[in-house]
Design a protein around this nucleic acid. Structure first.
Lengths: 201, 201
DNA sequence: ACAAAATTACACTGACCAGTTTACTTTTAC
DNA sequence: GTAAAAGTAAACTGGTCAGTGTAATTTTGT
């Protein structure tokens, strides 16, 4: 009665890759399951054997994507390094999406879908909050190290990320191209201002 | 040979209203011209007589919407009032969308479409930059009044609005419900921090 | 080697939808 | 009052697409 299972991860991955590429290029609504199966060198039936619906395939693509992306964001507090350079790393992690054309495309589709689907968006907000956690922990460590002074670390990370998103993430999602030079100077100003308020003296 | 023209604005408005309502509720892709014509108490043919395509109807809806919305955002510098209360007005103007369920719905659709259509998004960015102009002018006036110190007013308004968007606009677009109490305290913190850096002493 | 598991090809269902056609009725400016 | 302008009803075209059914073929673990 025990089911013999075989390794189907190759096709599965091929389908996920194809779906990611298609969604990225055409958006959710304008990508068809036929396109995806063709791109994956598979039959449509196989696609449906792996994923019960277009919806769930899309979610699986996002799942994988956010998994990969979130691995970049755990930056431990380091006494040896300046606060500036460490905060810059958090910003870089947040905006790395804009450096990779593929990620950017997928992030766009993800955002456009989230905006229209509040319930799906909620999962998204959870992810964002988990990212905030990393930063909040970093703030706590810096506080213990007597380098920062503040009351609530979660509010602080919300505040910090809000500015970063508004400056670097959303404009790029909406198609703006920010020159590296400007990114650099904005980052510096932003971090300096932040530390002017919260650094302990 | 002169064409006799009759007033068709009533039907036209009814169609725009219906389209706005439908797009708001279902998004662009999931709204059909049949739905719109039914909601407008008109025939589909009449819809097409007024607007040559679904695309152009959508743009007409947005045009009207942004026209209305942009009238709220010109706040003149006033020596008599505190910097705090005036900056708060800029924030309120930016987030007023979230107070009106209709506007919010339409803004969501607009954003989801903009994200996937870079060329349409560009028009949008122009509008945003015009809003930035009002704030930049306000900053210049405050500088002349020796209440603020900074070098570039356009960079400063970008910085200011980035945080506001990241804190209040995008989360709401993505479905977050921020309690009034939290909005209030975040606004205060945000403005205080800003003034800690840029107020002249 | 072989049987179960996985995959394929492809036709098919049922639905939706942008935009058009046509023949008709209603409205309104003069 | 009338003729042109505006609007209507409903069927139609041509297309797309999510998801299914099926019978056949290929793969693979043992």
């Amino acid at each position: 009665m025990t089911k013999i299972k075989r390794d189907t991860s190759k096709k599965r991955t091929a389908i996920l890759d194809a779906a990611q590429k298609a969604f990225m290029e055409f958006g959710y609504e304008n990508t068809s399951m036929d396109q995806i199966s063709e791109l994956a060198d598979s039959s449509k039936r196989t696609v449906y054997n792996h994923f019960p619906s277009k919806d769930e395939l899309f979610e699986a693509v996002l799942e994988r994507f956010f998994q990969e992306a979130s691995e970049l964001k755990n930056i431990p507090y380091d006494k040896q390094q300046s606060l500036e350079s460490q905060l810059e790393k958090f910003i870089d992690a947040k905006i790395i999406v804009s450096k990779n054309q593929e990620w950017l495309g997928l992030m766009r589709v993800a955002m456009s879908v989230f905006i229209l689907n509040p319930q799906v968006a909620e999962e998204m907000m959870d992810r964002i909050h988990k990212m905030d956690d990393h930063l909040a922990k970093w703030f706590e460590a810096a506080k213990k190290d007597k380098k920062l002074k503040f009351s609530k670390s979660d509010e602080l990370s919300e505040l910090f990320y809000a500015g970063v998103s508004g400056l670097f993430f959303w404009p790029v999602i909406l198609g703006a191209k920010i020159p590296d030079k400007k990114v650099k100077s904005l980052k510096k100003t932003y971090i300096d201002n932040f530390l002017k308020v919260y650094r302990s003296h």
